[in-house]
Simulated assay, not measured.
Amino acid sequence: MVMSNDKDLWVSWDEYNHAIVDLARMVHESNWQFDQVLCLARGGLRPGDVFSRIFDVPLAILSTSSYREEVGKVQGSLDIAKHITMTRGSLSGKVLLIDDLVDSGVTLEKVQTHLKENFPGVTEVRSAVIWCKACSSVRPDYYLQYLPNNPWIHQPFEEYDSLNPHQLSAWLKKGEPS
């Protein structure tokens, strides 16, 4: 197991899953009621799914992307999808915007502006993330962990970033006893 330090925060699957539920507890204890969850793909997909299930509200998905270079460690220009994916209707009412983390704050800020400009049925937006870095230009309404040293967060699903389809058999065997 790799140890976390001021530059790197290593997160296991157990820690990650527990953090999502702990963030849900925090939102619940605030007594704020929301009508829909809007998660930012890709980082907010897992937290958004869990929140949608726990709070029994519809899940909407908005794809955004800003990390493109050096295996996702250099921020490029932000792309926001034109459409939000949801099963019925349009995004409206009170919306909880969920992502895994806020780094520079650019994504959170621009998505909130995008929602105000393009979704008049939305009456209120609050944001929730697991990790909030000190370097962020904005603070989410809810965050589980404040990171004053702005470490790079190594999330458990990142192992899939370097896995190719032709490696799947070998990857599956690596955890099997000989």
Rank of each mutant, 00 (worst) to 15 (best):
L147Q: 05
L59E: 02
A41D: 15
V71G: 12
E158S: 07
P140Y: 06
F157W: 15
E117R: 13
I98K: 02
L45H: 02
R46C: 08
A60V: 04
Y160R: 01
V138M: 07
S63E: 13
K133G: 02
L38T: 10
D79H: 15
F119I: 09
T87I: 12
Q36E: 14
L96F: 07
Y67E: 11
C132K: 04
G121S: 07
C135G: 12
I153M: 14
R139V: 11
V74S: 13
D49L: 00
T113W: 05
N118G: 02
Y146K: 02
D141Q: 04
G48V: 00
S127F: 04
A41Q: 09
L163P: 03
S127R: 01
I61L: 07
E159N: 11
V95G: 03
F51A: 00
N149H: 13
I80C: 08
G48Q: 00
C132T: 12
N149V: 12
E70M: 14
M86I: 08
P151Q: 09
V106L: 15
W152N: 03
R68Y: 15
A134G: 10
S104N: 11
I98H: 00
L59I: 01
H114E: 13
P120M: 06
Y146C: 03
E158K: 06
L96D: 03
E117F: 08
L163I: 14
L144G: 04
G105D: 14
Y67K: 04
T87D: 15
V71P: 04
I98E: 01
K110E: 13
Q145H: 10
I130Q: 03
T64V: 15
A128M: 03
Y142F: 15
G43E: 06
Q112C: 05
D99E: 12
H154F: 09
P58K: 04
W152I: 04
V106R: 11
A41G: 11
L96M: 11
V37H: 00
Q112H: 08
Y142M: 04
C39H: 05
Q155R: 08
G76C: 09
D141M: 00
Y160I: 00
K133C: 03
G44N: 06
V37E: 01
T85Y: 11
R42D: 10
I61K: 00
H83S: 08
E159G: 02
R42L: 04
I98G: 01
S104V: 06
V129G: 01
A81V: 06
V138A: 07
P156A: 06
G89T: 10
Y146G: 05
D103V: 04
T87M: 15
Y146M: 08
Q75G: 08
I80H: 10
D49A: 01
E124G: 07
I84F: 12
S162P: 05
S63R: 13
S104R: 03
I84K: 05
H114G: 07
V71R: 14
V138D: 10
E109L: 09
Y143G: 01
P151W: 14
V37L: 01
E158R: 09
G72N: 08
N118Q: 12
V106E: 15
P58Y: 13
S137H: 11
D49N: 02
E124D: 15
A60G: 05
P148G: 09
I80D: 07
T107V: 11
L45T: 02
S162M: 10
T123R: 03
D103Q: 07
Y143P: 05
V125P: 00
A81D: 12
F119A: 05
V74H: 10
F157R: 04
